[in-house]
Amino acid sequence: MRIVFFNHPTFLGSQSMPRFAHMLLEGMRDRGHEVQSWLPAPGLFRLPVPQGMKKWLGYMDQFILFPNEVRRRLRDCPPDTLFVFTDNAQGPWVSLVADRPHVIHCHDFLAQQSALGAISERKTSWSGRQYQAFIHRGYSKGKNFISVSKKTREDLHKHLPSAPVRSEVVYNGLNQSFTLLDAIEARTVLGQKIGLDLTAGYLLHVGGNQWYKNRRGVIEIYDAWRELSGMNLPLLMIGIPPGQSVKDRREVSVYKSDIHFLTGMDNEAVRLAYAGASVFVFPSLAEGFGWPIAEAMASGCPVVTTDAAPMTEVTGDAGFLIPRQPANEQEVTNWAKQAARVVNHVVQLKGAEREKAVKAGLENAKRFDANQALDQIEAIYYSLLQTEKKHEHTSDYR
Results as ranks from 00 to 15, higher is better:
Val94Phe: 10
Val4Leu: 03
Pro50Trp: 05
Glu295Met: 03
Pro40Gln: 01
Ala318Asn: 04
Ile380Ala: 07
Lys366Ser: 09
Lys54Thr: 08
Gly230Phe: 00
Ser95Phe: 05
Ser167Val: 07
Ala200Val: 11
Asn88Ala: 05
Ala186Tyr: 09
Val304Leu: 03
Leu272Tyr: 05
Arg137Leu: 00
Asp396Leu: 15
Ala133Asn: 04
Arg354Thr: 10
Glu353Lys: 15
Asp30Ser: 09
His136Phe: 00
Thr305Ala: 07
Pro79Asp: 13
Lys123Ala: 14
Ser395Val: 12
Tyr381Ser: 07
Lys256Gln: 15
Tyr171Arg: 12
Ala336Gly: 05
Asp396Glu: 15
Cys77Ala: 15
Ala365Trp: 10
Ser125Tyr: 06
Glu363Gly: 02
Phe289Gln: 03
Ile64Gly: 06
Gln338Thr: 15
Leu235Ile: 01
Val270Ile: 14
Gly27Ile: 08
Leu272Trp: 15
Glu295Tyr: 09
Met297Val: 04
Ala373Ile: 06
Lys213Ala: 12
Ser120Ile: 11
Lys366Arg: 13
Lys143Ile: 00
Ile219Val: 14
Met231Arg: 12
Tyr212Phe: 12
Glu363Asn: 10
Ser299His: 08
Ser114His: 07
Ser125Asn: 04
Gln372Cys: 12
Met311Leu: 11
Lys193Ser: 14
Arg71Trp: 06
Asp61Arg: 00
Val218Thr: 13
Ser395Tyr: 11
Ile64Met: 14
Lys366Glu: 11
Thr124Tyr: 00
Glu154Trp: 04
Val4Ser: 07
Arg216Leu: 07
Leu349Phe: 05
Leu82Lys: 12
Met53Glu: 08
Ala41Trp: 11
Ala115Lys: 07
Pro310Gly: 13
Ala379Asn: 10
Lys143Cys: 03
Tyr202Ser: 00
Leu198His: 08
Arg271Met: 13
Leu25Glu: 15
Gln338His: 14
Arg153Val: 07
Val103Gly: 11
Leu44Arg: 08
Phe11Gln: 01
Ala318Gly: 03
Asp182Lys: 02
Gly58Gln: 11
Arg75Cys: 07
Ala298Val: 05
Leu385Pro: 09
Arg166Cys: 03
Glu220Trp: 10
Gly27Phe: 02
His260Tyr: 06
His107Tyr: 06
Gly208Gln: 06
Arg122Met: 03
Asn214Gly: 03
Phe145Ala: 10
Gln244Val: 12
Glu268Cys: 04
Asp223Val: 09
Lys247Tyr: 04
Ala277Lys: 11
Asp87Ala: 01
Phe85Tyr: 13
Ser167Ala: 15
Val218Gly: 09
Val97Leu: 14
Trp93Lys: 02
Asn334Lys: 15
Asn209Gly: 01
Ile3Ser: 02
